[in-house]
Computed example of a mutant assay.
Amino acid sequence: MIAAAAENNALGKDNDLLWHLPDDFKRFKKLTSGHKIIMGRKTYESFPKPLPNRTHIIITRDKNYTVNYDECLVVHSLEEAIDLVENEIAFIIGGGEIYKQGEKASDKIELTRVHGTFEDADTYFPEIDENYWMLTKQEFHPTDEKHKLSFTYLTYVKKEDTLKSL
Rank of each mutant, 00 (worst) to 15 (best):
A5Q: 02
E110V: 13
L135M: 11
D62G: 02
S46A: 09
Y156A: 09
A10N: 00
S46Q: 06
K159V: 10
A81F: 01
I57M: 07
D70P: 11
F47D: 11
N8D: 06
L84P: 03
R61L: 12
R41C: 05
I59M: 12
L21H: 03
D24A: 10
Y69W: 13
L149N: 14
T123W: 00
M134G: 08
D144T: 04
Y69G: 09
L51W: 14
I109F: 05
P52M: 06
T112M: 13
E80R: 05
I38Q: 08
T117D: 07
H115W: 05
D129Q: 14
A90N: 01
F125Q: 07
K148T: 14
I59S: 10
Y132I: 10
H56L: 09
M39Q: 11
N87T: 02
R113D: 08
V157C: 13
Y99K: 13
I57N: 05
E119Y: 06
L18Q: 03
K137A: 14
F118Y: 13
K148E: 14
T123V: 11
N15E: 04
L149E: 15
A3Y: 11
R54W: 07
E7W: 08
D16M: 10
E79T: 11
N15L: 02
G12V: 02
K100H: 07
E71H: 08
R61M: 11
S77D: 10
D16Q: 12
N53C: 10
H20Q: 12
G12W: 02
S77E: 10
K13P: 00
F118C: 00
L84D: 02
T60L: 12
D62L: 02
D122R: 04
Y124Q: 01
I98G: 00
K29C: 09
W133S: 03
T155G: 07
A81D: 01
D23E: 15
I37D: 10
K30R: 15
K148M: 12
L154H: 04
D144Y: 05
T152W: 09
K63R: 10
L163P: 00
